[in-house]
């Protein structure tokens, strides 16, 4: 291999252009920001002490985190209902690896019930693992209106589908009934043809056939 390339594809290992060049004003802004944070923290710490409480520092939020969003659908727990599940030891603690129960792929943990699972999905640990900030973005009016229109449309479509469903169900039922009637007639005719006179087998009624009146 004559052509020596760095692991990241840089043509020379001496090339440092990928490094971020620090802008003076940006640096100053960052420093000011940090000072502000220290100040705020000091204030909060003081406040907490006044109230006789212990101050807990918030973990800093990485810049590339994404907002936390609501679940788009209900958790699918229905397919677990009624199935035998092995209850793992140490309830409440997720069990490492995939096993029977509710599995979180991002954290490689399995929970024995849906409540513990959902608690895990809401936990700081899980949010960090999935690169979420835990912050929920604020929605503006326009977005609320759009969502509303979308939901309204969806409901109307569902209603329309139900109507279609109902109509087709009625049609299917009618077809079915028609077929059954046809089948009965066919059997009746066959039975009649089997007897000589073509009148079919007469039903013989016996009195006192064991039924107490």
């Amino acid at each position: 291999m004559a052509d020596h390339k760095g692991a990241y594809g840089a043509s020379s290992s001496n090339d440092t252009s990928f490094r971020k060049t620090w802008d003076r004003s940006e640096y100053a802004a960052k420093a000011a920001d940090r000072d502000q944070k220290i100040k705020e923290e000091g204030k909060a710490r003081y406040q907490a002490t006044l109230e006789g409480k212990k101050y807990h520092r918030r973990a800093s939020t990485p810049e590339d985190t994404k907002d936390t969003e609501a679940r788009s659908a209900r958790l699918n727990v229905a397919d677990k209902v009624g199935k035998t599940q092995i209850i793992v030891a140490g309830a409440g603690q997720g069990k490492r690896g995939k096993s029977a129960g509710f599995y979180c792929e991002a954290c490689d943990l399995t929970y024995k019930d849906n409540l513990q699972f959902v608690e895990h999905l809401n936990s700081r640990q899980h949010l960090v693992a999935t690169g979420e900030s835990g912050e929920v973005r604020r929605a503006a009016l326009e977005e609320v209106k759009d969502r509303f229109e979308y939901l309204k449309r969806k409901r109307e479509e569902e209603k329309a589908r139900e109507v279609v469903d109902l109509t087709s169900r009625i049609e299917v039922a009618r077809d079915q009934e028609e077929r059954e009637r046809e089948e009965k007639r066919r059997k009746r005719n066959e039975k009649r043809r089997k007897t000589k006179d073509g009148l079919g087998v007469q039903e013989i009624k016996v009195e006192n056939d064991g039924v107490i009146c």
């Binding site: 609501a70 679940r71 959902v118 929920v136 604020r138 929605a139 977005e143 609320v144 969502r147």
Partner: peptide, 12 residues
């Protein structure tokens, strides 16, 4: 826990 987590004024 399941239905209200992460809702904003639109997704609510």
């Amino acid at each position: 826990k399941e239905q209200c987590f992460g809702l904003n004024a639109a997704t609510l």
